[in-house]
Design a protein around this nucleic acid. Sequence first.
DNA 1: CAAGACGA
DNA 2: TCGTCTTGG
Length: 342
Amino acid sequence: MGLDLKPILTHTNIKLSDLSNKIIAVDAFNTIHQFLATIRGSTGELLTNSHGEITSHLSGLFYRNINLLAEGIKLVFVFDGVSSPLKTDEIQRRHQIKQIAAENYEKALVQGKLEEARKYSQATSVLTDKMIEESKRLLFLLGIPTVQAPSEGEATAARLTNSDLVQICASQDYDSILFGAKRLVRNITISGKRKVPNRNAFIDVPLEIYNLEDILNQTNLTNEQLVDVGILIGTDYNIGGIPGIGPKTALKLIQKYSKLENIDQLQEQLSNVPYEEIRELFLKPKVANVTNNDIKFEPVDYDKVVEFLCTEKNFSPERVNSALQKVQNSEKNKNQSLEKWF
DNA sequence: CAAGACGA
DNA sequence: TCGTCTTGG
């Protein structure tokens, strides 16, 4: 998976409520994949409606986004387009992992090893076109704008943080840092929420914020050099990187030699790596041209959300309504607090 | 993953 | 009332 930058990137911890009124570009594929991996029944099966249509992605998107909206967080979901030919190996690798996991899943099911089955099932998820369309539809009904990226979603999401349209990227992967995102937030979940004793309030388990400027200052690297570090470690475009070189070594090498071309002892191994192309992909990626008019935050369409989730997808009306209530209440609170100013 | 049920 | 377990679809 992706890029193991964590050991060399500093971050600060924040609370979910610190993101109130912030505009966040969410890596849609990354998020939906996570939901498909984790929102499952006891034997690892995906949630479905009565017609067998998968609903795990909708469950995750609905309940999480409701909580983020209630927190006053503004979201823009960025969807992947066509990925670079350089990513073919990585895509193939993921296919293989899914196939093996699917076989192990079936085996474990037959043997009645349910816990094992559930574990394997998490790696089998396939994101279909139908799921993508349904996700976009639900986001639309929730009033959350979506952006279609021409290539990597993270590239467009990162570029948005260089405008005034968006302040932060949300993803579990670190690629957006290499794509030049000013800020990255990881672990944007609400399950870390803990109720605080004796009061109607919550404390939040910390989310991680990565700030590109701080990272470059602390590592004494440029954006270009950070990409070189990534290439040594391994990206989706050169899986595994240079054998034997991990994050710490990669950082030291670039700090010492300043770029890949200067590391004499690695020239032979680097000759198999199209690093100039990879640099181009991270530093000058194809991105969507997004303007102010493309990002409009609309109110939730309560009736249509209920119709979609409850009527079409067999969600519990009680659960859906009480979730929607949260947003309605928080809007009331906002209006009240606004009135106090006047 | 997140909500709701449940039991200490 | 609070943390833990189970269900959701």
